[in-house]
Design a protein around this nucleic acid. Sequence first.
DNA 1: CTTGCTCCTGCGACTTGTTGCAATAATCTC
DNA 2: GAGATTATTGCAACAAGTCGCAGGAGCAAG
Lengths: 145, 145
Amino acid sequence: MALADPWSGVQAQLRARGLRWTPQRRLILEVLAAQDGHVTGSDVVERCRERDALTTPSTVYRTLEVLEEVGYLHHSHGPDGRQEYHVLPTREHAHLRCDVCGRTWEVEPDEARGLLDGLRQARGFRVDLGHLTIAGRCRDCTADS
Amino acid sequence: MALADPWSGVQAQLRARGLRWTPQRRLILEVLAAQDGHVTGSDVVERCRERDALTTPSTVYRTLEVLEEVGYLHHSHGPDGRQEYHVLPTREHAHLRCDVCGRTWEVEPDEARGLLDGLRQARGFRVDLGHLTIAGRCRDCTADS
DNA sequence: CTTGCTCCTGCGACTTGTTGCAATAATCTC
DNA sequence: GAGATTATTGCAACAAGTCGCAGGAGCAAG
């Protein structure tokens, strides 16, 4: 699971910024590495606690914040406003979420190109695509109503 | 401010659904009517308390929920995931929010047309525009970096 | 390996909501 | 107007985060 470990550089990254490598941070990184896709903040807290019952929420959230600054994470907000962390974002992409069934999909930049360019030209607004979650109703759930 | 009062029908609307008209609900409606644009949930709670110190948060949130079901309100989530209520939505529109200065703008359906149609055709996904908040950086804040 | 600078951690308190429950009170019917 | 129904309220507890603070611990320098 740690073959071509994409996390290997984190420690160095942190140190280069004068930040520190602590057992707590390592645990959080391990938890994040052990799963891909999306996680909510409380998911991370819970999984850390499974491994170390002494884990404190504030530490987790602060670490998540740091990791986002360093670029290893990205977060956006779910349907209910809960934080959703997206591990190791390859290229920036938005999310689509069905209000009915709760499934989510990734939206590549190309699909949103029109909107992005439009807002940029008309308003000079640069969209933070990675933070964008589009709610609505998917094909399967559109049947009724 | 209450000339052609747009709230006049609420009581009837509620009753028609077997719901009730209570002093608490009237207060909340008054607070909402006394201001247009966006409000966060806690804003509403606070303003209700200014008028009636006994106001309970749960009552406010539950009423807001009811009012949304009836169609007098719309809510989406702010930058930090906090709930933002949008009073009396005329036509459905999305929001643009600058991460730097915090200002927001409304985005008319036409501007997002491309994205909406694209997602609809490619994936059969119907976007809930009113719930969409697009984060990014506005023209003024794009100067640096 | 000791020292010291600061970053981090953990704690407790607080914010913003949400939820279950028993008591209250709108509204309907007679 | 009295009684029955059942939607609503208010409370208390909980969930998801955030924040300030004092003590502890990385890390680099000597």
